[in-house]
């Protein structure tokens, strides 16, 4: 548990020696597996039911989506660099890498917005077919999680350059890092199951 240097407190003693925040975050990520698991299995059940609308292979743009997966992967790398910089109490590098992660995340979400608009124009409305409803719900949920992650990253950048003591926010950076990596890991599963496995 990182000390808060401004208040000379002994870090709170815990029975397992682990920090409350980190334990709480991992529990939260465990339950998020169930949430995304539910959405993915709804999609897998309904992927073939296109009714009169376009089929998955007609609207998916594999090259584009694979680049967006690559971008999310790189943002995971920059996130890890930010976390290790925070642990080495180098606030300047932490702020830099957090900003880069946020920007990469923004490009990923931009790519998603483009993909949704393109598909909408190709006739895949939210209620066109079961495939459409479940696809938009799944990728939409993931997109919202990424956007929340970006907002948290930017607020962290805002807080960091105001905090006087380098490295005092290392734990918060690590928490947001765990969240970001989880969102990237979920995209790894989504990218393979939804885009690469042809219907």
């Amino acid at each position: 548990m990182a000390e808060t240097a401004t208040h000379e407190h002994a870090a709170h003693h815990t029975s397992t020696g682990l920090s409350n925040n980190k334990l709480g975050m991992w529990l939260f990520l465990g339950s998020e597996c169930l949430l995304f698991g539910g959405l993915i299995s709804t999609y897998m059940l309904y992927r073939g039911r296109v009714g009169t609308g376009p089929t998955p292979s007609q609207v998916f743009d594999i090259p584009f989506t694979s680049v967006s997966s690559f971008v999310l992967l790189m943002s995971s790398l920059t996130m890890v660099l930010a976390v290790s910089a925070a642990h080495n109490k180098d606030d300047r590098a932490t702020t830099l890498w957090l900003t880069i992660t946020a920007l990469l995340g923004a490009t990923f979400v931009g790519g998603q917005v483009y993909e949704f608009t393109a598909m909408y124009n190709e006739g895949l409305g939210f209620s066109t077919s079961l495939f459409a409803s479940s696809f938009y719900t799944l990728t939409g949920f993931h997109g919202v999680h990424v956007t929340v992650g970006i907002i948290m990253l930017m607020s962290l950048v805002g807080i960091l350059n105001k905090s006087k003591v380098p490295g005092s926010r290392a734990e918060t950076v690590e928490m947001i890092g765990l969240y970001w990596h989880f969102v990237d890991v979920v995209w790894i599963v989504i990218f393979t199951l939804i885009y690469l496995i042809p219907v």
Partner: peptide
Amino acid sequence: VASYFMHLKFDNKIFSWMFYTGLFLAI
């Protein structure tokens, strides 16, 4: 990603237990 980027490999086993219980239960 889970073991290196998310530090599961270097951290206490309790974290791995928490995460993988949720994951395998979901699967």
